[in-house]
Write a protein that binds this DNA or RNA. Structure first.
Lengths: 228, 228
DNA sequence: CCGGGTAATATGTCTGCACATATTCAATCG
DNA sequence: CGATTGAATATGTGCAGACATATTACCCGG
């Protein structure tokens, strides 16, 4: 019977689905389950912990483990680098750096990155192409202090790839939304003004300082998808 | 020094950021790290495993652990029930069931749920309101076989809430996209035709059968956001 | 009846050990 | 020289026991 913690996770999930253990109810303790399944408590713990981070169970010390009433579904998305995304479709990736200049950051960007508005950062405008067709229109604010003395040529290597290779791991947040194309976006992406476009916005910080804030405008038909 | 696996995870992350351990390079074995930090190997394992599922490390038996070259960022989103979402904004949730009827499923829906096109399912149209304003326009295909003999009145309880309470836990996938409002959507949501709308699509299955396929059309300005 | 302190309890984590399993490296044989 | 076989190795998972910690339940005094 004891086929590892994954078997236990599956069995627990089954009992929840069959309503042996109804939503809101507490399930047996780790010790009892360990005895029933003939495994160590650590093994049961592993299985239940995974189900808890998945949002299926809620666990509290002393109170025990209960089946979540409103299972807040957690979806995990992979956010790949754009080049990878294009190549995964079997297309050729290229990009054009349309603009790069020093500017004072506007208030919303500043507050999002946690710096004073008017602070001078690098502003860049990039168009990513898949097989020569517009794929993503990227506008970015970049903290110049993360760059080395002689800055790399971002017409050669895309900012994002340079950052993941040289600045290293960072925290950040991501937001998705929909927006009608502005005049500029319509022109660059080759769509009608007001067309519905999918937007990804990301901000990232290193341990010390804000790194970058990006807004990606995706070509029509773009989807973000998850297999749960 | 030994403050548990979280401290170890943090220290490993730090060394990666400082490029003590550069991208693509292998890091010391669990045993070596356990010795260095003065903890058991299981503790190191826990820390490294978490970083591996986060996409920061890549681990292979015998080959060792290496720092991911292209850290595929994984974003985790919470997908709450609509009522919770509205109430979290401090607004009052209500909904109106606009239509409910039996229909044969069209091809795209059928293939997504893995059933034959033309199979008869329940089709429903619901409008969710926040403080009386249109919030989400929901169209749904529902497998009648998950309902009890005398079906619940979905004008009283929203389908989604009935499902989470009575059908229980299911797998599914989620997709986000952007789309211009159709004539019907524009009318129901009170926006201009062609306005950019954020779309969420979900399909869910139980262990035995497909349960439901939903398309949620969100009011303008809607965002899905993640704190990583 | 209420509030505070205390004990009981379920989970969280750790240790030290063992064996399983995947993968690589090397040696051996045709 | 190439392919197959076999050992070496790093991670994956397991067990039993222990202590830590959060939270609840209970008792007792006011």
């Amino acid at each position: 019977m004891s086929f590892g913690w994954e078997a236990i996770r599956t069995e627990v999930l089954r009992r929840i689905r069959v309503r042996d253990w109804p939503p809101g109810g507490t399930i047996p303790t780790e010790e009892e389950l360990a005895f029933e399944f003939g495994v160590a408590r650590a093994t049961v713990n592993r299985a239940l912990r995974e189900l808890a981070v998945a949002g299926v169970l809620e666990r509290k010390r002393r109170a025990g483990t209960r089946v979540a009433v409103l299972p807040v579904r957690k979806a995990t998305l992979d956010i790949p680098v754009i080049r990878q995304e294009v190549e995964a479709r079997g297309q050729v990736h290229s990009f054009r750096l349309l603009a790069q200049e020093i500017r004072g950051v506007p208030v919303p960007v500043g507050s999002k990155l946690g710096i004073a508005a008017g602070e001078r950062m690098i502003w860049m405008e990039t168009l990513h192409l898949a097989d020569g067709q517009p794929f993503v229109y990227e506008t970015r604010w970049l903290n110049p202090s993360v760059l080395p003395p002689q800055a790399p040529d971002f017409a050669e290597i895309s900012v994002n790839e340079w950052l993941v290779a040289h600045v290293g791991y960072a925290l950040g947040d991501i937001a998705f939304s929909a927006c009608g194309a502005t005049a500029r976006e319509a022109e660059v992406m080759g769509v009608a003004e007001g067309a519905a476009l999918f937007i990804t916005e990301r901000s990232t910080w290193s341990a010390e300082a804000p790194i970058t804030a990006v807004r990606l405008v995706h070509a029509p038909g773009y989807r973000v998808q998850t297999l749960v």
